Amino acid sequence: MTDEATQKVLVTREGAVLVVTINRPESRNAIDRETSLALAEAMDQLDSDPALSLAILTGAGDHFCAGMDLKAFVAGERVELPGRGLAGMTQSPPAKPLIAAVEGYALAGGFEIALACDLIVASETAQFGLPEAKRGLIAGSGGLVRLPERVPRQIAMECALTGRMIPAAEAERWGLINRLSAPGAALDTAKSLAAEIAKNAPMSLAASKEIVAQAGRWSEDSLWPRQNEILERVIASRDAREGATAFAEKRPPVWKGR
């Protein structure tokens, strides 16, 4: 990966939280192929490091992400990564929890990236939308699949067919947003939420995410066996013993992520 590509995505650690920033403010953080590769690398770092519990994904400047870089698309770039999708995550999100901190626009692929995250914190001035039909495209990076899971089907259908923008207040009303912040404070609000989450055991967080995200697609016959398989992994972990021991000793647990 080139130095230029690395600079398109900034990655910092704050304790157990990885803060990942799409750093292309001059193009409203639109995603080209190098940015997808850099974001995929950041997601791999999140999942491979047992000291990390979750990540926050945000955008530099005034906007979260305006979607796929159309100039790159017209120039022949394939922005999506095989098996991983746009931004290296819309098709295969990380195993660990991911919070989107949204200021300004989260449009087209940018909205789809936010929908691939587990939680959304948004500024009061944020706007969401799937305008692909206006450009002769469809929201093929998960928007048409995930939005109906987050809001009523008829609202998702209207958004997909009209391409209209959804103001943050409306998105909160439909339950799409977890926390609404003052303008400019989405990242700080996301960090506060992340700190609350990071107090808990990393394996428990990843396992809980897996069940919440996948259980709706499991058959009735397989639901309990699949959940119990995940549960057994958690019960057998060092952190499960540490949690019980810390509770008995009336002290904060020290998680190892294993």
Results as ranks from 00 to 15, higher is better:
residue 1 M to I: 13
residue 1 M to Y: 08
residue 8 K to D: 14
residue 12 T to P: 00
residue 19 V to P: 00
residue 25 P to H: 07
residue 29 N to I: 14
residue 30 A to S: 10
residue 31 I to S: 02
residue 33 R to C: 10
residue 38 A to D: 03
residue 41 E to H: 03
residue 43 M to C: 09
residue 44 D to C: 09
residue 45 Q to N: 08
residue 45 Q to P: 05
residue 47 D to S: 10
residue 51 A to F: 11
residue 52 L to N: 03
residue 57 L to K: 01
residue 62 D to A: 08
residue 66 A to P: 00
residue 69 D to I: 01
residue 70 L to G: 13
residue 73 F to Q: 08
residue 75 A to T: 11
residue 76 G to H: 07
residue 78 R to S: 12
residue 78 R to H: 15
residue 80 E to D: 15
residue 82 P to C: 12
residue 85 G to I: 10
residue 105 Y to A: 12
residue 111 F to C: 11
residue 111 F to N: 06
residue 116 A to V: 12
residue 118 D to Q: 02
residue 123 S to T: 06
residue 124 E to W: 02
residue 125 T to A: 06
residue 127 Q to Y: 10
residue 129 G to C: 04
residue 131 P to W: 07
residue 140 G to T: 10
residue 141 S to W: 02
residue 142 G to Y: 01
residue 142 G to M: 01
residue 143 G to M: 01
residue 146 R to Y: 05
residue 147 L to G: 03
residue 148 P to V: 15
residue 156 A to Q: 01
residue 166 I to M: 04
residue 168 A to C: 05
residue 168 A to N: 02
residue 168 A to T: 03
residue 169 A to E: 14
residue 174 W to V: 11
residue 177 I to L: 00
residue 181 S to K: 02
residue 182 A to C: 07
residue 182 A to K: 11
residue 185 A to T: 12
residue 185 A to I: 06
residue 188 D to M: 08
residue 191 K to D: 13
residue 197 I to H: 05
residue 198 A to R: 04
residue 205 L to F: 07
residue 214 Q to R: 12
residue 220 E to F: 14
residue 223 L to Q: 08
residue 226 R to F: 11
residue 227 Q to L: 13
residue 229 E to F: 05
residue 229 E to T: 13
residue 232 E to M: 13
residue 234 V to W: 04
residue 235 I to L: 14
residue 240 A to Y: 12
residue 240 A to C: 14
residue 241 R to Y: 10
residue 242 E to W: 01
residue 242 E to L: 04
residue 245 T to I: 08
residue 251 R to D: 15
residue 252 P to Q: 12
residue 252 P to M: 15
